[in-house]
Amino acid sequence: MLTTACASVPVIPQEGKFPVPPPPDYRQAGNWAALPTTDDYADRTPADSILDRQAIARADVFFIHPTIYAGTRKHNKLWNASLKDDKLNESVDKSTILNQASIFNGAGKVYAPRYRQANLSVFYDNGAAVKTQALDTAYADVLAAFDHYLTHFNHGRPIIIAAHSQGTLHAIRLLADRFVGQALHQQLIVAYLVGMPVRKREFADIPVCTDPEQTGCFVSWRTYREDYVPDPERNDTSIAVVNPLSWTTATTRAPSSLNRGGVLYNFDGGPIPGLVWAEIRGAFLYTNKPSFFGDIFFRSQNYHVADYNFFWSNVRHNAGARVQCYLRKQ
């Protein structure tokens, strides 16, 4: 969920019914937020010295975006977003595709499907009754998009799976359905499963990454301000946390000097080196409050919206390093 704003509640389906918008046809380029063959926000970089290398990339990135559908809209009042909602599509493009998917254009060709994302409300009590149905509908699209990608675009190339929040929930299912115990596992470079809790032993044959160049593994973290105190039941030691500055599971603090550059609300302002430090404590990743113009209004202890942005350059560099390591092994 890229947004943490309060959401208005969509129309609750009648008992025994769950109306949804029509499914997308992934043969149509308009049903993709990013393709390497189109001009889109995943092609952007925050500085002239940072290049979009998709044209020469030897790997692919399948990116699953987080929740942007956070309220009822003029053309869609259902629990799942309509892909005909142009305003919502624009919001997806200018937020998560720009700030998150763009990270990976230096490591691979970026494919990011639009999908009938579940409304933000399903993650709160007022959406509990329809949560499974809404998320299943969203995942059906993600799986269909991935299968279309495999059939028409992949051509046996190595793959990075990258996701955030709701997207990570779908990525977990996708890895279980298409990679675990299957031949496609051999094409997996790494999975970035960010913004949701992922168990260390979630997958039988995809371990937690403990080294910055390890491949065939996954990384995960959820970011909070250093003074955040979680409820004890949330601090589950079975949850995987990888530090995106050291790319290990060590609990020692990785200093801000290791931060190659975070990207804040002014994307074109370029990465800010040394933005935050990072430290694993239990099931969470902690950082200091970053210093930037207007930071007095940045009061949240939950840095979910910045899970990628605080470590933008480090994730970009790491994705490229893992691609090169994978290719050397082949």
Rank of each mutant, 00 (worst) to 15 (best):
S91E: 05
R116A: 11
R253E: 14
I12A: 10
F310L: 15
P232L: 09
L327A: 04
H185Q: 10
W32A: 09
H152Y: 12
A171D: 05
L169H: 08
D205N: 11
P46T: 10
V142L: 08
A138W: 07
V142T: 06
T3N: 02
D136H: 07
G181V: 00
G71Q: 13
A128R: 00
K84H: 07
H185N: 10
G195C: 03
R116Q: 12
R260E: 03
A306W: 15
F298G: 10
E202I: 07
R322Q: 09
T37N: 06
N314L: 01
I296T: 13
V194L: 02
S121C: 13
F123S: 05
A81M: 06
G262H: 12
T4G: 11
T223V: 15
L327Y: 12
D43E: 02
Y326M: 08
R328S: 15
Q100R: 07
N80D: 13
A107Q: 01
P244I: 15
R44D: 09
W277R: 08
L143V: 09
H304K: 05
G167D: 11
G71A: 14
T45S: 14
H148Q: 09
G262K: 14
G181S: 00
F218W: 13
A57N: 02
F311P: 00
A250P: 02
L35P: 05
F310E: 12
I56V: 09
P230L: 14
P232K: 12
D307L: 06
Y69L: 09
F18N: 01
V263T: 13
G282Y: 04
I189R: 01
Q187A: 08
T3S: 09
D231G: 11
A306S: 14
P46V: 09
H170P: 03
D48T: 06
I56F: 00
A112W: 06
V194Y: 01
D25A: 06
I296Q: 15
A81W: 08
M196I: 08
G320D: 05
E233A: 14
K289C: 08
P19H: 13
N318F: 04
